[in-house]
Amino acid sequence: MRILHTSDWHIGRSFHGHSTLDALRGVLEALVTQVRDHDVDVVLVAGDVFDSATPASGAYTLLSDALRGLADAGATVIVTSGNHDSAARLGFQSSLLRSGVHVITDPTSIGTPLTVADEHGDVHFYGIPFLEPVLLRSTWPGVRSQSDALGRAMELVRADQAHRGGRAVAMAHCFAAGVEPTPQLERDIQQGGLDIVPLSTFDGVDYMALGHIHGQQQLSPRVRYSGAPLHYSFGERFKPRGSWLIELDAGGLGAVEWLDLPVPRTLTTLTGSLDEILTEARYASHEADWINVEYTDALPQRDPMRRLLARFPYCAAVAHMPAASSVDDARTYTQRVRAARSEAELVDAFLAHVREGEGASAREAELIAEVVEERSHAEAHA
């Protein structure tokens, strides 16, 4: 049996204010082609189908078209809800879908699989929707964390699997131990906002399809994240986009292969002075990319986004990232102020303090001198 593992479509998410619906439609059409070209039997979508609990109508249309395309390509499709989804709305959508597409949003269904047969017998698919511990405490006493909830869910899976026999695949949406750190992940851990699920929680199944992490990751040969099909931030730009193709043989997990998906528009970060980025020929190859500019001028420049868009029509973000100050002055601001011998020097000390050591330019010094002179003249004739 051939299984395609995908997740985190985030239909409806914007990219720095730009709609991603058309780009995602193209990528999901490529996913359908993968299913057809590789004779995939089952497609797993492991949560965060939508980006919002209240998606716009266009998001519903895209989801319906994508699921219909996967089913028409010959696959059984199994979808679970993620933390971004409204389980109620996604569950309602399931009642409108064609045969062969299954959307799992109800925690009470955990432990009851969808069974698909191949030449070696039955394969049982256990979908685990995103679990909110606070909503499960009356149903599962003692559950206080997502780790507890996933542990209880997998106990139900293993108990049912022991009764049924055969091969088993499960899918869930969570942070699992062993995930490659990212800046956002590290912040969540430090702030205590992340509930890590031990890898041993997923013992007992032939393959565990996880969602929640946007980059492809392998935690063990049988526990993997597929990541998102689109890049949704510049921090993800080096992570490949694609899906896992899993083969189950008579004994369980066989071969696993990564299938790349197309990247509709390359994401690029350009660093340098604003003038260099706007004029130098070496940046011409990036004019059709999504662009994030970090310009290193000592001082903020006027209208940088407007000027950048004239060359890079897909410039999405710009930030002033001045190079480290070359001024070696260990004095405190108070000491600089006390050392100033005139009002012009006082202004220069302030500018150097707020501009990473960059004092007044020659033209600014002229303007400061004029203002100081005018003020002294006015005071003298007051």
Rank of each mutant, 00 (worst) to 15 (best):
R2M: 11
T6K: 09
S7F: 00
D8T: 08
D8F: 02
W9R: 03
I11E: 07
H16R: 06
G17P: 07
V27Q: 08
L28F: 04
E29R: 14
V32C: 15
R36N: 02
V43R: 06
G47V: 07
G47P: 09
A53K: 15
T61G: 04
L63A: 13
L63M: 12
A71K: 12
A73L: 07
G74L: 09
V79P: 01
S81E: 09
N83K: 05
S86F: 02
A88T: 11
R89H: 04
R89A: 15
F92M: 13
F92Q: 10
Q93L: 14
L96W: 12
S99A: 15
T105L: 07
T105F: 04
T112V: 02
T112P: 01
P113R: 03
E119C: 00
F125W: 10
V134C: 00
L135C: 04
L136Q: 06
L136D: 07
S138C: 00
L150C: 10
E155L: 09
R158L: 12
H163W: 01
R164E: 09
G166F: 09
R167P: 03
R167M: 03
E186D: 14
R187I: 14
I189F: 12
Q190K: 14
Q190F: 11
L194G: 06
P198V: 08
F202Y: 15
G204W: 13
M208L: 15
Y225V: 09
Y225L: 11
G227P: 10
G227Y: 10
S233K: 06
K239H: 14
R241F: 10
E247G: 05
D260M: 01
T271K: 14
D275N: 14
E276D: 15
E280G: 01
R282A: 12
A284T: 10
S285F: 06
E287A: 14
D297C: 07
L299T: 12
P300H: 03
Q301T: 08
M305A: 07
V318N: 08
A319N: 10
A319V: 06
A323Q: 07
S325I: 04
S326R: 11
V327D: 12
D328F: 00
T332W: 06
T334Y: 08
Q335L: 05
V337F: 12
R338T: 05
R338C: 01
A339G: 05
E343G: 13
E343D: 08
L346G: 04
D348M: 05
A349Y: 04
A352T: 04
H353R: 10
A362F: 01
R363N: 05
R363M: 07
A365V: 06
A369G: 12
E370G: 05
E370A: 13
E374Q: 10
R375K: 04
S376A: 14
H377C: 02
A382E: 14
